[in-house]
Design a protein around this nucleic acid. Structure first.
Length: 520
RNA sequence: GCCCCCAUCGUCUAGUGGCCUAGGACAUAGCCCUCUCAAGGCUAAGACAGGGGUUCGAGUCCCCUUGGGGGCACCA
C-alpha cells in the first residue's frame, strides 16, 4: 500500500510556522516512502474562513518547494479537496451510521444541554453526554431523523478503552466513559470537524495521519468514527507543537501582534516590504508579515532551503551532530522514530545562522538573480536589469562575500553602490571631522588619480607604499576613505569598494565628503 | 474539576541500563585573524526538574511530587 499523507490547513489565517513544520513532516514522510502528499482545505467553518487566505498558503508552500500530489490547483482522483464541497459525503456517511445503529438523532436543545452541563459542574462531575435515543432501534432513529432533522450524535460504545498506537506519542489509551457522544452532524446537515476529518481521511485513503499534538485528544473520537464506518485505521503520528521563542507556550498566530516590535517594523521598512508612506501604526497592524508567518522570511530574503532545513530539524534529528541537512538527505533519512515527543521552541537566531550557511553555499549566479528583486523593490536598480548592471551586482555580491545571510542584507552592506552615500553623522564625526582628515582625504584623492588600472590589486599595491611613506597605518587611510565613499563604517573591503565604484565615482564622492566636512 | 501527554545546557538536540567525567549545534564570553562589519579558527562557561524505588550499575526502567502543555464544544 502506498503511503498517503495529508496536510489540511483551514484558510483562516496565513501560513504560519507551526503549520509549515507539520506539513513538511507529512511531505517528507510521503517523499521518503515514495507516496503521495495531499493538500486538503478545511474550510467548513464559513464564519472564520477567508477565501483570500488560501492563495498565500499555496504560494508559501510553493516557495518552500513543498509540492502536493493532490489538492487545490492540481486536482486528483479523490476530490473535491475542499471540505465545503464535500458535504454530501459527510451526510451520506452520517446516514449510514444512523442505519447501522452507530448514531442517533438528538433533540435536546442547547439550553437543556447547558443546564445539564452546569449541573454536572456543580456536582463536580465531568459532563459526559449520552442521548436518550441511544437505545432507540436504527430504523426508528432513521424515521425520527427523516421526520424531523436534528443533531446527529455518534453512539460511543460503553465500557471499553480506545487505544491509539501513536508513532510519536506512543501508546495512549482512553476509556470510552470519558468520551461524551459527539455531535457529528448539525441540524442543518453540516458536519463537525472530528467527523469530517475521519470521513475525509478514509475517503482519501490516508495511511499516515501526521498532525499537531493538540489533535491527540480528538483522535479517540475519530477512531470511533473509523470503527463505526467499518474502515481500517491509519497510523497516527502526533507532532509536538512549536513553542514561541524562549517560552513554553505554543507559537500562535494570535501572538502575531506581540512580534510587531519597533525593530520588526523598522526591518520591514528597510526591505521595502511595505509602502514607504505607511505609518508605523499601519505597519504594526499588518498581520501577514511577522515572524510567525512564512511570508515574513520570504520578504526578508531568507533562502527557502534554509527554512526547510530549520523546520526539519525542529523536533527531528538526523543524528547526534548534523545540522545542515540538504533536502535530498532529509528525504532519504526522514523518519517518525526520530521525531521528539516534546515541544520545541522556535529559535529565530538559529534560523538566521542556517540562512547564512545556505547563502554561503549558493552559487554567485543564483545569488545575483535572487538579490535583484530586492534591489528593484527598493528602487536601487530599474525594473529591467541590463548586462552592465548585472555584472555590477555580481561584483558587489562578490565583494560582500559571506556577509549576506539573507538577501535583504544587501541594503546594509551594499546599498551605497547603487545610490549616493547617505552620510551617517556618527561615522562622519568619528572619521572625517578629525584633525587632518580632510587634508588626508585630499592627498589620497591626488594619489588615487594616478592609479591605473583602478582595480583592487593595483589600489592595494599602490596605496600601501603611500601609507608607509607618509607614516600612516593602512587602517587610518581606509577608515577615512570608507566613510567618504560610502557614508558608513561597515561594508566590504575598501579596495573592493573603490574598484567597483570606479575612479570617477570615487573622486566625486570624495569631493562630496570634503564639501560636507568643510561646510560646517 | 476531570482525562491525556511532556520534562537533558538559555535554545535545538544526541543519548533506548555500563561506551556519559553527558556529545554536537545556535546564542553568549575571551583570544586569534583583520582597514570596518560579517565570516573563519581556537578556547571557555553552560543541562539530566526534585524525591523515592528496581538493579552490581540509571539521563536511560517504575512510582510520587513539581512544573508545563493539550483536551473536556452544534471551532478547526
Amino acid at each position: 500500500m502506498t503511503v498517503r499523507t495529508r496536510f489540511a490547513p483551514s484558510p483562516t489565517g496565513y501560513l504560519h510556522i507551526g503549520g509549515v513544520r507539520t506539513a513538511l513532516f507529512n511531505w517528507l514522510f510521503a517523499r521518503r516512502h515514495g507516496g503521495q502528499f495531499i493538500l486538503r482545505i478545511d474550510d467548513t467553518d464559513a464564519e472564520r474562513n477567508r477565501p483570500e487566505a488560501l492563495q498565500p498558503i499555496l504560494d508559501g508552500f510553493r516557495w518552500l518547494g513543498i509540492d502536493w500530489d493532490e489538492g487545490p490547483d492540481v486536482g486528483g482522483p479523490y476530490g473535491p479537496y475542499f471540505q465545503a464541497q464535500r458535504k454530501d459525503l459527510y451526510y451520506q456517511a452520517a446516514m449510514r451510521l444512523l442505519e447501522t445503529g452507530h448514531a442517533y438523532p438528538c433533540y435536546r436543545t442547547k439550553e437543556e444541554l447547558d443546564a445539564e452541563r452546569k449541573e454536572a459542574e456543580k456536582a463536580k462531575k465531568s459532563y459526559i453526554h449520552r442521548g436518550e435515543h441511544r437505545q432507540t432501534p436504527p430504523d426508528e432513529c432513521l424515521r425520527l431523523y427523516r421526520h424531523k432533522p436534528a443533531l446527529v450524535r455518534l453512539k460511543v460504545p460503553e465500557g471499553r478503552g480506545v487505544i491509539i498506537d501513536d508513532l510519536i506519542a506512543g501508546k495512549v489509551e482512553v476509556q470510552t466513559e470519558a468520551i461524551g457522544d459527539p455531535v457529528i452532524l448539525r441540524a442543518d446537515g453540516s458536519a463537525l470537524y472530528n467527523f469530517a476529518t475521519a470521513v475525509d481521511d478514509i475517503h482519501l485513503k490516508i495511511t499516515h495521519v501526521i498532525r499537531a499534538k493538540e489533535h491527540l485528544s480528538n483522535t479517540p473520537v475519530q477512531v470511533l468514527v473509523y470503527e463505526a464506518l467499518g474502515a481500517s485505521l491509519p497510523k497516527f503520528a502526533h507532532v509536538p507543537v512549536v513553542n514561541a521563542p524562549g517560552s513554553n507556550k505554543k507559537l500562535s498566530k494570535r501572538d502575531a501582534k506581540k512580534f510587531m516590535t519597533p525593530e520588526i517594523v523598522a526591518k520591514l521598512r528597510a526591505v521595502h516590504a511595505v509602502p514607504a508612506d505607511w505609518t508605523d501604526e499601519q505597519v504594526m497592524n499588518l498581520e501577514t508579515l511577522n515572524p510567525v508567518m512564512v511570508a515574513f522570511y520570504q520578504a526578508l530574503g531568507y533562502l527557502p532551503a534554509a527554512l526547510v532545513n530549520y523546520f526539519g530539524r525542529l523536533g527531528w534529528s538526523l543524528d547526534d551532530k548534523t545540522e545542515i541537512i540538504p533536502l535530498e538527505d532529509m528525504i532519504r533519512h526522514f523518519g517518525l522514530e526520530r521525531v521528539n515527543n516534546s515541544p520545541a521552541a522556535f529559535d529565530p537566531e538559529k534560523l538566521l545562522w542556517l540562512a547564512g550557511e545556505y547563502m554561503r553555499m549558493l552559487p554567485l549566479e543564483d545569488k545575483t538573480a535572487g538579490v535583484i528583486p530586492f534591489l528593484q523593490r527598493a528602487e536601487l536598480v530599474g525594473d529591467s536589469v541590463d548586462e552592465a548592471t548585472r555584472i555590477k551586482i555580481r561584483r558587489v555580491l562578490e565583494a560582500c562575500g559571506d556577509r549576506l545571510k539573507v538577501y535583504s542584507d544587501i541594503f546594509q552592506y551594499g546599498a551605497f553602490f547603487f545610490r549616493d552615500p547617505i552620510y551617517d553623522p556618527q561615522a562622519v564625526q568619528k572619521r572625517l571631522r578629525k584633525e587632518g582628515a580632510a587634508e588626508l582625504l585630499r592627498n589620497i584623492s591626488a594619489e588615487l588619480e594616478k592609479i591605473a588600472p583602478f582595480e583592487h590589486a593595483e589600489l592595494e599595491t599602490r596605496l600601501k607604499p603611500y601609507c608607509e611613506a607618509n607614516n600612516l597605518k593602512i587602517g587610518d587611510l581606509n577608515h577615512v576613505l570608507r566613510v567618504a565613499t560610502t557614508g558608513v563604517t561597515i561594508g566590504p573591503g575598501v579596495f573592493e569598494i573603490l574598484a567597483i565604484l570606479g575612479k570617477e565615482e570615487t573622486q566625486r564622492r570624495i569631493g562630496t565628503a570634503l564639501q560636507l566636512v568643510e561646510s560646517v
